[in-house]
Nucleic acid binder design. Structure first.
Length: 985
DNA sequence: TCTTGCCAATTTTTT
DNA sequence: ATTGGCAAGA
C-alpha cells in the first residue's frame, strides 16, 4: 500500500486520492484535517506528477506552515518539500511581490509595517488632522476596508460625509506607507492580488492550490486563491465552519459557498471521525456548538471511550481560580503516575489579559509554564530597537523606524528637534533621512536652529547607519543580519546602555538581544541549505527582480520578524512546561488536559464582541482542544470588571443549565485507577502501574478537589484555618487534619445527577477513620478500587473504556446527526431545500439563497469500478495538463458529495466515476443516480452522491422544505443503519 | 530644551 | 505591570 495513505481512514483516503479538480474537505475538530491535506500534497506530487514548485499551499499561521513542512519533509523528503510554495498567505504574497512587484510599480526592498508601525503612523496622522477617532478603531476600519478591496477613492464614493474623515485618514495613511516604502499586512494581500490580476503569467506554472483553514479566509485571500489557481483550476481546501473564529479579521464563512458557486464542479468530502477527544468532551462541546441554530447539524463521531465528564468549577475569586488550577494540575500530574505531564496541560484564555493572575499563581507554586500567543518577543523594547536599526539600514526611507531609534540610546535629540526635522522634511518633500543628512552636512537648515548637542547626536547616528550600510554592501551572503547586529550593538555599546537604563532586569534584556542574534544566525544557517525557500520558479518571459544577496537576506529577516507571531525560538521547549495560550492561538493544537478559565459573561462572550456566534465557536474550539481532561471554571466575583455592580459574574450563556447538569461535573474528577486507565487509553499511552499512581500521592494536600465547595465557596474547616494555612507553597506541610478526604458534602450534591450521587456518598468513609487523616497509597488503592465512580453517564453513547465504533450507527441515526441534506442545507443557507424535483440544468447566474439542491446518491457497483487490484495503477503520474477551458460560475453548480461515513471501509476505486483528466467532470458528476447499498458483499460501497444545485424560480413553502430535508435525512439514516453491521477495517 | 519622575489609563482575538 | 502623557529640575 502506498505509504502516503498509511494511517488514514477511508474518508481521509477519499479526500487524499480524489481526482476531483475542486475539492472541499469539511471536517470537525480532531478529524485529521491537516494530516489529510499534507497527505494530499504528497499524493498529488507522487501520483499526479506535479512538480513541487508548481504547487501552492496556503496555511493560516506560521506555526501551521512550519508543521506542515515538517510533516511533508518526512513524507516526501526535504528536497521536494523545500521547493513547494508553502506558507501563510502573507508570506507567499510577499515572495511574489519581492520577485515581481516591479511589474506593478512596487519599489525594490519594500518593508512590512507591523501593527505597531501602523498604529504609530495613524497616531501621527490623527493628531495632525485633529481627528476625533481613536487610533485603534481607525486601524481596524481601514484594515476592514482593505480586506474588502476598497481603496480610499472607492471608499470615498460610497460613504457619507461624516465618514469622510476616515477616508482622509486612510489616504494619508496609504501615502505615509508609500513614503516609507512599506506595505502593511493587508497591503501584502491586496497588492499581490493586483499583481496577479494584471500579470497572471506570474503564476502560470501553478498546477494546483491547497488551502488550510479555509473558513478563516477573507475576501482578498479567497480572490488570491482563485488567482493562484487561475491557470489550471485545481483547488483543494480544508476547513470547518464551526471553527471560524476570525470574523473580526474579516474572515468570511460564506467563502465556502462562494467557492461552490464559482466552481460548478466542486466536490466535497466530509470527515467525521474525531481521533482526539473523549466522547464526553465531544458531547459537551457539541452541546455548546449546537446552540447555533443557523448551523447545519453535523456529527462528530467519537472514536474514543466516553472517558470522564468535563468539569465546570465555580470559585470565589479569580485568584482562587488560579490557585485551583494549580491544585488540579498537581493532582492530575501526581495521581496519574506520570501519565499526564506538565507539557500535556494547556490553559486556554479568551484574552491575554487573563494570563497575569495565572502566571503569578503558577510562579509562586513553582509550576513551569510558557506563554504563547502574545507577540512577546519582538515587542520587547530592546529587541524592537535593534530591529528598527536594521530596518533603517535596510531602507533609510523607513521614517518610523528612524524615529524609533533617533534618540535611543539618548543622543540629546528631544521633541523639539524632532519636530524641526520632520517639519522640515515635510516641507522640502524629502525623506526624513535625507533631510537629516542634508542638515548636518550644511546643505539645508531647519527653521529654528538646532542645538549643538542635538546636531552632534544626529551626526553620530548618521555615521553609524552609513557605516552599517557599507558593511551590508560588503556582505555578500545571508549572514548580513547577524553581522549588522553585531556591528550595531558594538558601536552603540548597547549592553552598557541596557545596564544603565534597566538596572533591574538588565540581564534578561541582554539575553533577549542575544536571542535576536541567535535567530539571525539561524536564519543565516538555514539559508545555506539546498534550496532557497525564497525562490520562486522561473517563468519564461517574466523577469524576476534580482537584488544584492545580503540585502535580500536582511529584508527577508525583517519580514520574518514582522510576520512572526510566536517566533520565540523553541529552544527551551524541552523542559516540561504548562502552556498558557489564547484560544485563538490554540487553534489546530491539542493537549491531553485543557483548562478554560473565566467562562463568564463578559469574558466569553467578550463584552466587546460583535458577533455572538463567533464567541460560541470560540468556546467550542477551546473545548475541542482537549483530549482526555477538560476543566472549565469561573470566578464568582471579579474585583474590577465584573458584570454586576458588586463585581459578581454570571456563567456564560453558552453553558445552559441543562448542559451543565448533563454534561459537566461541578468538581475535578476523582482520579482513581479506572479514570486514569481511560485517560491512558485515550492518549494511546501505556497505562501507569498502580505503584506509579500512588507514589506521589503524599505530596498532595488532598487527593480530591475539595479545597472549595462545589458552589465555589471557601471551605470552612472546624478551626477555620483553610485560608491562611494553605499558601500555595506549603501544601506539603499543612496539617494532616485538613487533608482528610471529604465524604459527604451537602453542597456538592445539588449538582450531582442521581447516578453519581449514589457513589459519592460512601466510598471514602474508610479514609475518614484513618488516624492520620490521610490515605496511604495502599489504602487509597483499596478504596478507589471499590469506589467505582461512574466514568460515564447514562447516555446512548456512553460506552466506558470501549472504542465506540460499534455504537456508531446509533449516533448517526440520531436526529442531530449530520446528513448530507443538513450539510447541504448549510451551504444553501436556511430554507434552500426543496423536495427533489428535476431542475433545469442550464439556468444562468445562480442566486444562492434561492437555489435548491437535488440530492441523490449513486453507487456504482461492479463493472463501473476498476478492480481493486488495478487501483494502484489508476493515478499514475500524468503529463501536466494544458490549461482547461474555464468553468464559469454561470453554469449550474453540481456538487459531488463524497461523504464517506467515518467508520466503514471503502473501495478507493469509486473515484473513477470522475474522469481522470477532469475535462468532462461536469457531465459525469451531474448524473445522479439513486444510491444503492451493496450490503451483501460486506464491503462498504462508496456513497457517492451527486448533489445538483441550480437556481429555482420560486421556493416551496417552509413546510415543503422541511419535508425535503426529512426525506433525505431518512434515506441517510436508513443507509447508516444498514451499514452499521458490516464493517471492514 | 532635554531628562526625569510621577500619575493615569489600559487589555479581544492575528497576519 | 507596562506605557503614554504631563510637570518640574538640569
Amino acid at each position: 500500500m502506498d505509504p502516503i495513505l498509511d494511517g488514514l481512514n477511508t474518508a481521509q483516503r477519499e479526500a487524499v486520492t480524489s481526482s476531483a479538480p475542486i475539492l472541499q474537505v469539511l471536517a470537525p475538530p480532531g478529524s485529521g484535517k491537516t494530516k489529510t491535506l499534507t497527505a494530499r500534497v504528497a499524493y498529488l506530487l507522487s501520483h499526479h506528477g506535479y512538480l513541487p514548485q508548481d504547487v501552492i499551499c496556503c496555511t493560516f499561521t506560521i506555526k501551521a506552515s512550519r508543521e506542515m513542512r515538517e510533516r511533508l519533509a518526512k513524507l516526501i523528503g526535504e528536497r521536494l518539500e523545500s521547493r513547494l510554495i508553502l506558507g501563510t498567505f502573507h508570506s507567499i504574497c510577499r515572495r511574489y511581490l519581492v520577485k515581481y512587484g516591479y511589474l506593478i510599480g512596487l519599489r525594490k526592498g519594500f518593508g512590512i509595517a507591523d501593527s505597531d508601525d501602523s498604529r504609530a503612523i495613524l497616531r501621527r496622522i490623527i493628531k495632525r488632522l485633529n481627528a476625533t477617532i481613536e487610533v485603534k478603531t481607525a486601524q481596524g476600519k481601514i484594515s476592514r476596508h482593505k480586506a474588502h478591496g476598497l481603496s480610499p477613492d472607492a471608499l470615498a464614493e460610497r460613504v457619507k460625509a461624516e465618514e469622510m474623515e476616515l477616508v482622509d485618514i486612510y489616504r494619508a495613511y496609504q501615502s505615509a506607507l508609500a513614503d516609507s516604502n512599506l506595505l502593511d499586512y493587508d497591503d501584502l494581500l491586496v497588492r499581490c492580488g493586483d499583481l496577479l490580476r494584471e500579470h497572471p503569467e506570474c503564476v502560470s506554472n501553478v498546477q494546483t492550490v491547497l488551502v488550510d483553514e479555509f473558513q478563516d479566509t477573507n475576501i482578498i485571500q479567497y480572490d488570491l486563491m482563485n488567482l493562484f489557481a487561475a491557470q489550471n483550476r485545481r483547488i483543494t481546501i480544508v476547513g470547518d465552519p464551526d471553527q471560524s473564529i476570525y470574523g473580526f479579521r474579516s474572515a468570511e464563512i460564506q467563502n465556502l459557498r462562494r467557492m461552490q458557486r464559482r466552481y460548478s464542479n466542486t466536490s466535497i468530502v466530509l470527515l467525521e471521525s474525531n481521533y482526539r477527544s473523549s466522547a464526553s468532551i465531544l458531547k459537551s462541546a457539541q452541546g455548546v456548538i449546537e446552540q447555533d441554530t443557523m448551523r447545519p447539524a453535523k456529527t462528530l463521531q467519537a472514536t474514543h471511550s466516553f472517558g470522564t465528564l468535563p468539569v465546570l468549577r465555580k470559585l470565589p475569586t479569580a485568584n482562587a481560580e488560579a490557585h485551583w488550577m494549580v491544585l488540579e494540575i498537581k493532582r492530575a500530574v501526581a495521581m496519574t503516575g506520570g501519565l499526564v505531564r506538565m507539557s500535556d496541560i494547556a490553559i486556554l484564555l479568551r484574552s491575554t489579559s487573563l494570563s497575569t493572575r495565572i502566571e503569578t499563581a503558577f510562579g509562586r507554586a513553582g509550576i513551569p509554564y510558557k506563554m504563547v500567543g502574545g507577540r512577546k518577543f519582538f515587542d520587547r523594547t530592546e529587541v524592537k530597537t535593534l530591529v528598527n536599526y536594521l530596518r533603517v539600514v535596510s531602507h533609510t526611507g523607513h521614517a518610523d523606524a528612524l524615529l524609533g531609534i533617533i534618540n535611543v540610546p539618548p543622543r540629546r535629540i528631544g521633541d523639539e528637534t524632532i519636530r524641526q526635522l520632520t517639519g522640515g522634511a515635510d516641507k522640502a518633500q524629502v525623506p526624513l533621512w535625507n533631510f537629516i543628512k542634508d542638515v548636518i552636512q550644511g546643505r539645508r537648515s531647519t527653521e529654528k536652529k538646532l542645538q549643538k548637542a542635538a546636531e552632534q547626536g544626529l551626526c553620530s547616528l548618521v555615521k553609524l547607519i552609513d557605516a552599517a550600510k557599507q558593511k551590508l554592501q560588503d556582505c555578500p551572503d545571508a549572514s548580513a543580519p547577524c553581522v549588522l547586529l553585531e556591528h550595531i550593538t558594538e558601536s552603540l555599546s548597547f549592553q552598557e546602555y541596557l545596564i544603565k537604563t534597566y538596572p533591574l532586569d538588565e540581564d534578561s534584556r541582554w539575553a533577549n538581544v542575544k536571542e535576536l542574534m541567535g535567530q539571525a544566525n539561524d536564519a543565516a544557517a538555514s539559508a545555506g541549505d539546498v534550496a532557497q525557500e525564497e525562490d520562486l520558479p522561473e517563468i519564461e518571459g517574466v523577469e524576476q527582480q534580482q537584488s544584492h544577496p545580503g540585502e535580500e537576506a536582511l529584508s527577508k529577516f525583517l519580514a520574518n520578524v514582522a510576520l512572526a507571531t510566536e517566533a520565540t525560538k523553541e529552544g527551551d521547549m524541552e523542559t516540561e512546561k504548562v502552556t498558557i495560550s489564547t484560544i485563538h492561538a490554540a487553534k489546530g493544537l491539542e493537549w491531553p488536559v485543557v483548562f478554560i478559565p473565566a467562562v463568564y459573561n463578559g469574558s466569553i462572550p467578550h463584552s466587546r464582541a460583535e458577533v455572538i456566534d463567533e464567541e460560541r465557536r470560540l468556546l467550542y474550539v477551546a473545548m475541542t482542544r482537549a483530549q482526555a481532561l477538560l476543566y472549565l471554571s469561573l470566578p464568582l466575583r471579579q474585583p474590577r470588571l465584573g458584570e454586576g455592580e458588586d463585581g459578581s459574574t454570571s456563567l456564560t450563556p453558552f453553558l445552559t443549565p441543562k448542559l451543565v447538569k448533563d454534561r459537566f461535573r461541578p468538581k475535578g474528577p476523582q482520579l482513581h485507577e479506572k479514570v486514569v486507565y481511560a485517560i491512558a487509553d485515550i492518549l494511546r499511552r501505556p497505562r501507569p502501574t498502580p505503584d506509579d499512581m500512588y507514589k506521589e500521592l503524599n505530596s498532595l494536600p488532598s487527593t480530591l478537589d475539595d479545597r472549595w465547595t462545589s458552589e465555589g465557596e471557601e471551605r470552612k474547616d472546624a478551626d477555620g484555618q483553610w485560608k491562611d494555612a494553605m499558601g500555595p507553597n506549603d501544601e506539603a506541610k499543612s496539617n494532616p487534619k485538613r487533608r482528610r478526604l471529604d465524604s459527604n458534602q451537602p453542597t456538592s450534591t445539588t449538582y450531582m445527577s442521581a447516578s453519581s450521587l449514589m457513589n459519592n456518598s460512601s466510598n471514602f468513609q474508610v479514609s475518614t477513620t484513618l488516624s492520620t487523616g490521610f490515605l496511604s497509597a495502599r489504602d487509597y488503592a483499596a478504596t478507589s478500587a471499590a469506589s467505582q465512580e461512574p466514568v460515564t453517564k447514562s447516555t446512548p453513547n456512553a460506552v466506558p473504556e470501549q472504542p465506540i465504533t460499534k455504537k456508531a450507527s446509533s449516533t448517526a441515526s440520531r436526529k442531530d446527526g449530520l446528513t448530507q441534506a443538513s450539510i447541504s442545507n448549510f451551504f444553501g443557507g436556511p430554507g434552500s431545500f426543496q423536495k427533489r424535483e428535476p431542475i433545469p440544468a442550464s439556468r444562468p447566474s445562480i442566486q444562492y439563497p434561492q437555489s435548491s439542491y437535488q440530492t441523490a446518491q449513486t453507487t456504482r457497483p461492479g463493472p463501473a469500478f476498476v478492480p481493486p487490484a488495478l487501483t494502484s495503477h489508476r493515478l499514475q503520474p500524468r503529463p501536466l495538463q494544458p490549461s482547461r477551458p474555464a468553468l464559469e460560475p454561470a453554469q449550474p453548480s453540481n456538487y459531488t458529495w463524497m461523504a464517506a461515513p467515518s467508520r466503514p471501509a471503502v473501495k478507493p476505486a469509486r473515484m473513477l466515476t470522475q474522469p481522470p483528466n477532469g475535462n468532462s467532470a461536469v457531465e459525469a458528476e451531474t448524473k445522479s443516480e439513486e444510491a444503492k447499498q451493496e450490503s451483501s458483499t460486506g464491503i462498504q460501497s462508496v456513497t457517492f452522491n451527486t448533489t445538483t444545485m441550480a437556481s429555482l424560480q420560486q421556493q416551496g413553502g417552509p413546510g415543503r422544505r422541511t419535508l425535503g430535508i426529512r426525506r433525505s435525512m431518512n434515506g441517510w439514516e436508513e443507509r447508516m443503519k444498514r451499514e452499521g453491521g458490516g464493517q471492514v477495517r
